[in-house]
């Protein structure tokens, strides 16, 4: 990365955290650009929430530094740190109104009343919640609560916005809408944002870049497209999208015996009734409808594959030809080549 220092919003440098004798975060490095939206993606227990809590200041790293907009904040407590966090359950105070919740950070900062009023109104308008200003958190829906939490974070005008699984408590339809809203707002305000999630769809659709985490380490940090096209490790390839996972080697569009691992995306498996260069005879064994596409199980002489096909779906039992458009070859878990 050749960015000038001013461009770096957040730098995590050799972060290490040991909790209860277990290394939760292991020498973690991450550079987030100013105004960038970055996801920490991984299964539960991979350390992504711990990392977020260290960025917020709720945990102090055992080793390493956290630099925010060029300023070392490693040991600054959460109340002094220019970060704002939205918690998984929104953590709205039930005894305060929506207005009271959003105004709280400003009252803490001892701003003048009219100023508080003005900024809270702006923040509530931003998330379209002016009409619920005097409601209690218990009286509004989950999606609205989520927006209140967001407004409460944004009203602080933080240097960095931290979101901990912000969508996991919303139903599927709402989730898509809210994540677009968040993305929209983040772009508009140009605020550096780190979002923790275990949902790859969410990460892929919302982030500028994604850090895939595993066992307290970052496996790969790239754009969603790159992550999908060129997963650097077998772990990432498995975690992002679907994968045909085959022990062996790969040559001339065919799987051969070998000691490597061949990963083939179901989208890269092409079925056709006509033979083209690089395709080999195969039969359709099973077709499972998956909504807007079908998952098709194919048997070839060298390998059994599943493929995602959305047009001209063949029937089970059909014979045809299968071509593998792309294969990822891993040795000891690391990507060695793309064929």
């Amino acid at each position: 990365m050749t960015d000038s220092p001013q461009e770096e919003g957040l730098v995590l440098n050799g972060l290490t955290k040991i909790l209860g004798g277990r290394v939760i975060i292991d020498n973690l490095h991450l550079v987030v650009k100013k105004g960038e939206m970055v996801s920490l993606l991984g299964p539960s227990g991979c350390g992504k929430t711990t990392t977020l809590r260290m960025i917020a200041g709720f945990l102090i790293p055992d080793k390493g530094d956290i630099v925010l907009n060029g300023k070392d904040v490693t040991t600054i407590g959460p109340e002094k740190r220019p970060s704002a966090m939205v918690f998984q359950n929104y953590a709205l105070w039930p005894h305060m109104t929506v207005f009271g919740n959003v105004a709280y950070p400003l009252k803490v900062r001892k701003l003048a009343k009219p100023e508080i009023e003005k900024r809270v109104h702006e923040a509530l308008a931003m998330v379209n919640l002016m009409h619920h200003k005097d409601s209690r958190p218990g009286q509004i829906s989950g999606g609205e609560q989520q927006r209140v939490a967001l407004a409460r974070a944004l009203v602080q005008e933080p240097d960095i916005l931290l979101l901990d699984e912000p969508l996991s408590n919303l139903d599927a339809k709402l989730r898509v809408k809210v994540r677009e809203d968040i993305r929209d707002l983040q772009r508009r305000l140009g605020i550096t944002t780190v979002i923790v999630t275990h949902d790859q769809d969410e990460a892929l659709s919302i982030s500028d870049r994604i850090a895939v985490m595993n066992n307290g380490k970052i496996e790969q940090f790239s754009t969603p497209q790159e992550l999908y096209d060129r997963p650097e490790t077998e772990y990432v390839a498995n975690f992002i999208g679907s994968l045909n996972h085959i022990q062996g080697g790969f040559a001339d569009g065919q799987v051969i015996s070998g000691t490597e691992v061949v990963g083939i995306r179901p989208e890269d498996v092409h079925f056709s009734t006509e033979q083209v260069p690089g395709s080999y005879p195969a039969t359709v064994q099973l077709v499972v409808p998956r909504g807007h596409f079908c998952e098709v199980y194919l048997k070839r002489a060298d390998v059994e594959l599943h493929a995602f096909i959305s047009l001209d779906v063949p029937l089970a039992g059909t014979s045809g030809f299968v071509k593998i458009n792309k294969a990822l070859i891993y040795k000891d878990g690391k990507l060695v080549r793309v064929a």
């Binding site: 709720f58 959460p78 740190r81 966090m85 359950n89 953590a91 803490v108």
Partner: peptide, 18 residues
């Protein structure tokens, strides 16, 4: 009282007494 409700207040800048 859930931790998150306290931590949010900390995050918002509130001190111990507040």
């Amino acid at each position: 009282i859930p931790d998150a409700l306290i931590e949010t207040a900390q995050d918002a800048g509130a001190g111990f007494i507040r």
